[in-house]
Write a protein that binds this DNA or RNA. Sequence first.
DNA 1: CCCTAAGTGTTAGTAACTATCAGGATGGTA
DNA 2: TACCATCCTGATAGTTACTAACACTTAGGG
Lengths: 207, 207
Amino acid sequence: MAGRHSTLREQRRAETHRLIQAHAVRLFVARGYDGTTVNDVAEAAGVSAMTVYRHFPTKEDLVLADRNGPLVAERIAASPAGQPLVRRIGGALVESARSLTEGDDRFLLARLRLMIATPALRARHLDNHYVLQRAIVDALGDEAADPDAAFRATAAASACLAVMHTALVRWAEDDGRADLPDLIATALAAAFDIPGPTPLGASPPPA
Amino acid sequence: MAGRHSTLREQRRAETHRLIQAHAVRLFVARGYDGTTVNDVAEAAGVSAMTVYRHFPTKEDLVLADRNGPLVAERIAASPAGQPLVRRIGGALVESARSLTEGDDRFLLARLRLMIATPALRARHLDNHYVLQRAIVDALGDEAADPDAAFRATAAASACLAVMHTALVRWAEDDGRADLPDLIATALAAAFDIPGPTPLGASPPPA
DNA sequence: CCCTAAGTGTTAGTAACTATCAGGATGGTA
DNA sequence: TACCATCCTGATAGTTACTAACACTTAGGG
């Protein structure tokens, strides 16, 4: 049996993964998503096409790779149950965005722009939200008990995610200069007509 | 020049169009979307594969074919400008849904179920909402003038569309027994915490 | 009665995947 | 150190969605 922590193999695999994705995004930005074949990506990364498919099930996954869904669900479950649904969900999304922008902003922005501009990627990205939406409803726990409550929770979750996506688009258009959590909070406030933490374009409150 | 109303040609073309789509949806329901090739559809409809592609640019379009987007935009533009955004957009969506359910419900339900169950179709369907969202913001006219207002309008539109989609899913799960406009209105009320026209599951108000 | 153009079929080609087989590197074990 | 199971990778062949180009048939207008 392979032990729980194979070091060199996992390391190599992770490096190959990163290498392929980096070259893929670079080429997509340079020649366009549709103008770049998976073979091009494989060749640029110095691997075979099969290896690309082993690391990324589809060409679209070379750009998408959202994996902070569970994080959002955790925050939802940890939020106080008394507040209105939209506030619980929206709050979790705002906080998750904070940890999202901690990594490499250039890379994230490039991927985001591809997702927005390329129909195929945009569609898959929105569908990922669809999956995340179910996770959010499940994380609400007791809300998902009776069908009507689950329906209301689903409606609220889908609305919040859509609004977050709007903020993401705006953030990308702005080249990532704005504060993303703040943008999302503002968008949520605008859509749901609740007093948001800040008016449009302002800085986050000191506390 | 071809005149403004070529009768026989247009008629034949429309009939072929309808025939292909009918056979496609039938086969998709029977064998699954991924388990049916475009060649299967073409053979069942008695045409060549090329003809299928001439009528439907992609395999997904055999199921999607949403073409009441402009209708929504019209209603938006015709709505009074004083009301809050969510009410203007939501109202237009509810009314559009009324005319949507006037056709063949069985066919619409079959297509809708395919769209919900098949990832590729679901993704494209959500992306169509993304396009519709831009049309809605444009229809709001003066709201789209300054960027901040456009941002708020986009957030509201995306939220409303996401909520409508939730209602569509619920409607399909319910086999179309519920009143769709009513369902949408209820979902909007739940998401935006505004007093909806009816509580869950009730009938539409007499007036 | 032509003549343009639309609709269709056929063929050949690209590209995203999938299945399968074979070789080489890795990691634990005797 | 020697052995062996397992993972990673490469190469090949095949399926399917989709496109381009060409030829044929037929509707519709002069």
